[in-house]
């Protein structure tokens, strides 16, 4: 059985919104340590994954490993019935094909309960090598979203060049070209509070060409986190990570475009 109580529905709503256009259905894997998910898009180009650690829920109970097959369109529709501040309780009783979602309004005067039919999905897992990237960039997720949105008006792919001084995003299309350079920065705003900053750590300069259609899809996770981390290694897939407050993360992997 599974019983997991999440303090704010908004977290789950944002996670589902940031995945549902990439993957139509997949298993939620539940264990003692939390709820995780990994699925590729149909064309084998992008992989989406998330982890919500057990300590992000209060309480969290899962006494054995479970794979719960979910259709994202259904989950998205049902989560629209939850208020952002509602508490969400996710419940699964062993040997059933139903997942229950209970939404409790903050004043406790409204409790809604929805049941979702689970699917039997046989999923294939990719093993992703744990290796230090040649370059790790941390930047404002809003800035990253803006760059992807701006450059898709020029071309279908972006070349990301990361060097010690900063990160350059360039795109070329039939009608012209454009580039945006984000310099490494550590700014402090008027109140002495650290403003979103860009940091670049690297062992090698990296250059990757990537599809802007996919990157724009990934930026749907930007409302979850002020920052995005890009792990890049030459001739390897890009890994983008958005933290989900301090309870987990969403990660996307995107295969690069390869020179013919």
């Amino acid at each position: 059985m599974l019983e997991a109580r999440l303090p704010a529905a908004s977290i789950l709503k944002k996670i589902v919104e940031s995945i549902k256009d990439l993957v139509s259905q997949a298993n939620f894997d539940c264990s003692e340590s939390g709820i995780s998910f990994q699925a590729m898009d149909e064309s084998n180009i992008a992989l989406s994954s998330f982890l919500l650690r057990a300590d992000g829920f209060d309480p969290y109970r899962c006494d054995r490993k479970l794979s719960l097959g979910i259709r994202f369109a259904t989950l998205s529709k049902i989560l629209k019935c939850a208020g952002n501040d509602d508490v969400v309780v996710i419940r699964y009783a062993d040997d059933t094909d139903i997942l229950s979602l209970v939404f409790e309004a903050p004043d406790n005067n409204r409790i809604s309960e929805f049941d979702i039919k689970l699917l039997d999905i046989s999923s294939e897992y990719l093993s992703i090598p744990e290796q230090e990237p040649e370059c790790k960039v941390k930047m404002s997720s809003a800035e990253f979203s803006r760059i992807c949105r701006d450059l898709i008006t020029i071309g279908s792919s972006v070349v990301i060049d990361a060097t010690k001084s900063g990160v350059k995003f360039s795109s070329t299309g039939d009608d012209g070209s454009g580039s945006i350079l984000i310099k490494q920065s550590a700014s402090v705003d008027g109140d002495g509070k650290a403003a979103p900053q860009t940091t670049v750590e690297m062992s090698e300069p990296v250059s990757l060409e990537l599809s802007l259609k996919y990157l724009n899809n990934f930026t749907k996770a930007a409302p979850l986190s002020e920052y995005v981390v890009m792990n890049m290694t030459n001739d390897s897939p890009l890994m983008l990570q958005f933290d989900v407050s301090d309870i987990g993360y969403i990660r996307y992997f995107l295969a690069p475009q390869i020179k013919d």
């Binding site: 084998n44 180009i45 992008a46």
Partner: peptide, 14 residues
């Protein structure tokens, strides 16, 4: 010109 790579050529499936 460049062509889109696929993830399964980078990661092994299990």
């Amino acid at each position: 010109t460049s062509k889109q790579g696929r993830l399964d050529s980078f990661f092994s499936s299990s």
